[in-house]
């Protein structure tokens, strides 16, 4: 039985359809989980879940960490991790608030803020690739560093963003499209498309997957692994700055504590979405759906009449159950 099968004979039962099921198992799985959770909430509280308001609330708050989770997915697919993005959010937003107060020029403030995020991210990438320190360690360090710097610079005091209230920027980033859809949701959708295209239709994405899957081989075949990692860390820093701006504009205030509380939401969106912590596999679709699962649980729990104290317990349950199932299913279909 073994001798005959060594070379080119296909294993039985691999029709194109089952192949599609196998390669998309995780996306199908996360979709089923999302529908299941929605069904539970809808049955538990139809008056809430069959009206538009709750969805407007989801679309308003989920992008604060969802935008970050999309770009973080690219980092995790390269086999690395970034824990410093909440601190990059606040240092970049500090740059924005400071430049805005000093010059009154919002466009300049915006550009410098995004540059700050991009460079902080690339700095992570450079230390990881050129010095060779593991990303877990580097980004714990830079996380303390940037947050510490903000504390020193601000002394803990925030900045009001009220001058932005009547500008085009406010409408552009956190206004309401057609009076209903929060603009941050539009941005998250745009970033999702951009990330998907980069990952699946661009050379950078091909190199991201190869880097995470087999970095040695990728190097031998001419993929610039270091450059790929520096770029994805740079993009993660850039999107942290962007997400920080959106989150601050929504409340028209820059708090130096900005970003605290986003770390676990963001990471769990990536992992719940089926991206492997070992790198090489992961999808934007999975992360997108998973961020809304994470974003919906809090409101859903309260809506169906449970105490808000249950939220984290249920998060934990869903995340552990999902990743366990993913791993078991993943092993069986391989």
């Amino acid at each position: 039985m073994t001798a005959e099968r060594v070379s080119t004979v296909a294993k039985p039962g691999r029709s194109p359809f089952t192949l599609w099921l196998r390669t998309h198992a995780l996306q199908i799985g996360i979709t089923i989980v999302a529908i299941g959770i929605w069904a539970i909430f809808a049955i538990g509280s139809p008056q809430t879940f069959f009206r538009g308001n709750i969805y407007q609330a989801f679309m308003s708050t989920t992008p604060f960490f969802g935008i970050m989770a999309l770009w973080l997915t690219l980092v995790v697919i390269t086999g690395e991790i970034d824990l410093s993005f909440p601190s990059i959010m606040t240092i970049s937003m500090w740059v924005f608030a400071t430049v805005m107060m000093a010059t009154g020029n919002l466009a300049v403030a915006l550009v410098l803020m995004l540059l700050m995020g991009l460079s902080a991210g690339m700095l992570n990438g450079i230390i990881i690739t050129k010095v060779g320190v593991p990303s877990l360690v580097v980004t714990i360090g830079t996380s303390f560093f940037w947050r510490g710097m903000v504390k020193v610079l601000t002394g803990g005091t925030g900045t009001s963003l009220l001058p932005m209230r009547d500008t085009i920027f406010y409408e552009l980033f956190v206004g309401r499209l057609f009076g209903f859809i929060p603009m941050q949701m539009v941005w998250m959708a745009l970033f999702a498309i951009l990330c998907w295209v980069l990952l699946n239709r661009h050379r950078l994405g091909a190199h991201i997957y190869l880097t995470g899957d087999n970095a040695d081989s990728a190097r031998l075949m001419g993929v610039d692994v270091d450059r790929t990692k520096i770029i994805v860390f740079g993009l993660a820093g850039f999107s942290a700055a962007f997400a920080g701006l959106v989150a601050s504009l929504e409340v028209t205030y820059y708090w130096p504590t900005l970003g605290e509380g986003y770390l676990l939401n963001t990471l769990s969106s990536v992992f719940l979405g089926g991206t492997s912590v070992f790198g090489g596999t992961g999808t934007i679709y999975g992360t997108f759906v998973a961020s809304f699962i994470i974003g919906a649980i809090n409101a859903g729990i309260v809506a169906i009449g449970m105490s808000g104290f249950w939220t984290e317990l249920i998060y934990g349950l869903i995340i552990v159950l999902s990743v366990v199932t993913q791993t078991i299913v993943g092993r069986r279909i391989k």
């Binding site: 899957d213 081989s217 090489g280």
Partner: peptide, 16 residues
């Protein structure tokens, strides 16, 4: 071990 295991045949053929 020079292939990227989780990637498709075409991604491996055109690696780099």
């Amino acid at each position: 071990k020079a292939l990227a295991d989780d990637q498709s045949v075409w991604r491996n053929i055109f690696m780099g």
